[in-house]
């Protein structure tokens, strides 16, 4: 079945190292996305035509452009159009953050809008200032809603970063291909074992995080 290849030499640890690279890129992008996303999300609820128009276009771009296309635009397009020479890792982080910020901002906007208007009105009636309303009334409510969703964003980020292989980053899938190529003669069926293992590895990386997110969502709703 081709699983034996993984036990030879340092193949398994190389594979795990490759997964580590994917996880590292996703983690950096998630942190950037959450920090900037909260800001952009709050900006989206501001009643200003220009801000609304810009954020809408931004959201729509992210919503309809496949991440792979964005990846190609930044990695190949930016180099040619602007003479920028970005490393593959840097372009991946830029693209996934660009995507993640929009996703996060949309979640923040959604949670802000899901707070009934009466909450704002009541706090106004009680004499809270706008800032106080946010700090004492709105934010505590949305944080509970946001945390499970942000954790969910991590798993989606991990799944999306599998695409970086297409711009030449040597991550788990690429390492897998190298292992298969190197052992073509000795174990011709390696492809099955290696890809099945990668499949399981991704599952093991994402599943616990999904479970945590689901658990928190249930607990706090």
């Amino acid at each position: 079945m081709g699983f034996d290849v993984l036990l030879k030499g340092s193949n398994m640890s190389r594979l795990l190292g490759g997964l580590g690279i994917s996880l590292e890129i996703s983690l950096i992008s998630v942190v950037i996305s959450i920090v900037l996303g909260v800001g952009v999300g709050m900006l989206m609820t501001v009643n200003n035509r220009a801000v609304k128009a810009v954020t809408r276009v931004y959201l729509e771009i992210v919503r309809i452009m496949p991440q792979m296309v964005l990846l190609f635009i930044v990695y190949f397009g930016a180099t040619k159009a602007m003479g920028l020479n970005l490393s593959a890792e840097a372009s991946a982080i830029i693209v996934f953050s660009f995507w993640g910020v929009a996703e996060m901002a949309d979640l923040v906007r959604g949670s802000l809008l899901s707070i009934p208007v009466i909450q704002y009105e009541s706090s106004k009636a009680l004499g809270f200032s706008k800032l106080q309303t946010y700090i004492y009334i709105i934010i505590p409510q949305i944080v509970r809603r946001m945390i499970p969703l942000s954790i969910n964003l991590i798993t989606r980020m991990i799944k999306t970063t599998s695409l970086v292989m297409m711009i030449g980053i040597v991550e788990v899938l690429k390492v897998g291909q190298q292992i298969i190529e190197a052992n073509r003669k000795s174990s011709p069926n390696a492809a099955f074992g290696v890809f099945a293992t990668i499949f399981i590895l991704y599952f093991l990386a994402c599943w616990p995080i999904s479970c945590l997110s689901k658990y928190l969502e249930k607990k706090w709703s």
Binding site: T155, K159, T160, S162, L163, M165, L173, F195, A196, I198, F199, Y202, F203, C206, W207, S210
Partner: peptide, 13 residues
Amino acid sequence: LFRNTPLLIQLFF
């Protein structure tokens, strides 16, 4: 299983 793995990996498999 399928919600927690990327399509790219599923297709390769």
